[in-house]
Simulated scan of single mutants.
Amino acid sequence: MIPKQSASERTISLDAVDREILFILQQDGRLSGADIGRRVNLSQPAVSARIQRLERQGVIKGYTALVDPAQVGLNIHAVVRLRTTHARIPEALALFTELPEITAAYRLTGEDCFLLDIHTPDAAALARVVDTVGRLGPATTSLVLDEYQKKPLPQP
Results as ranks from 00 to 15, higher is better:
residue 40 V to E: 04
residue 37 G to T: 08
residue 15 D to Q: 08
residue 56 R to N: 13
residue 65 A to M: 11
residue 74 L to S: 00
residue 58 G to M: 09
residue 19 R to W: 08
residue 21 I to W: 01
residue 42 L to A: 06
residue 27 Q to S: 05
residue 42 L to W: 01
residue 74 L to A: 01
residue 35 D to M: 13
residue 30 R to F: 05
residue 40 V to T: 10
residue 38 R to S: 12
residue 28 D to Q: 10
residue 22 L to K: 08
residue 49 A to M: 15
residue 61 K to L: 13
residue 30 R to E: 12
residue 43 S to V: 02
residue 65 A to W: 10
residue 70 A to I: 08
residue 53 R to Q: 12
residue 53 R to H: 05
residue 62 G to I: 07
residue 30 R to S: 14
residue 33 G to Y: 12
residue 61 K to D: 03
residue 65 A to D: 13
residue 18 D to A: 01
residue 74 L to N: 01
residue 66 L to G: 04
residue 15 D to A: 09
residue 25 L to V: 05
residue 18 D to C: 03
residue 46 A to W: 03
residue 51 I to D: 08
residue 51 I to Y: 07
residue 48 S to K: 05
residue 58 G to R: 09
residue 74 L to K: 07
residue 75 N to M: 10
residue 26 Q to I: 11
residue 34 A to W: 06
residue 33 G to C: 02
residue 50 R to E: 02
residue 27 Q to L: 09
residue 63 Y to F: 15
residue 36 I to A: 02
residue 34 A to N: 13
residue 47 V to F: 04
residue 15 D to I: 00
residue 64 T to W: 08
residue 74 L to H: 02
residue 74 L to Y: 01
residue 24 I to M: 06
residue 52 Q to L: 14
residue 66 L to N: 13
residue 20 E to F: 04
residue 56 R to S: 14
residue 49 A to L: 15
residue 22 L to Y: 07
residue 34 A to H: 12
residue 74 L to C: 01
residue 67 V to E: 03
residue 27 Q to R: 14
residue 30 R to C: 05
residue 75 N to L: 14
residue 64 T to Y: 14
residue 34 A to D: 12
residue 43 S to F: 06
residue 62 G to F: 03
residue 66 L to Y: 10
residue 73 G to K: 05
residue 39 R to G: 05
residue 66 L to Q: 14
residue 45 P to S: 13
residue 37 G to F: 06
residue 68 D to H: 10
residue 32 S to P: 13
residue 29 G to A: 15
residue 68 D to E: 14
residue 47 V to S: 02
residue 68 D to W: 01
residue 75 N to W: 06
residue 36 I to C: 03
residue 30 R to P: 00
residue 69 P to L: 00
residue 64 T to Q: 13
residue 48 S to F: 03
residue 42 L to Y: 12
residue 59 V to P: 01
residue 68 D to L: 11
residue 20 E to M: 10
residue 42 L to C: 03
residue 69 P to K: 00
residue 49 A to C: 00
residue 54 L to I: 03
residue 35 D to V: 04
residue 71 Q to E: 14
residue 72 V to A: 07
residue 70 A to K: 14
residue 40 V to I: 12
residue 21 I to E: 01
residue 26 Q to H: 09
residue 23 F to W: 14
residue 51 I to H: 08
residue 64 T to P: 00
residue 33 G to K: 00
residue 47 V to C: 04
residue 50 R to Q: 08
residue 24 I to S: 02
residue 20 E to R: 15
residue 61 K to G: 07
residue 62 G to Y: 06
residue 57 Q to C: 04
residue 62 G to C: 05
residue 75 N to R: 11
residue 69 P to G: 02
residue 41 N to L: 10
residue 71 Q to G: 06
residue 19 R to E: 15
residue 75 N to I: 02
residue 54 L to K: 06
residue 49 A to W: 04
residue 28 D to N: 15
residue 50 R to A: 08
residue 53 R to D: 09
residue 66 L to W: 02
residue 50 R to C: 06
residue 35 D to T: 13
residue 28 D to I: 04
residue 75 N to F: 10
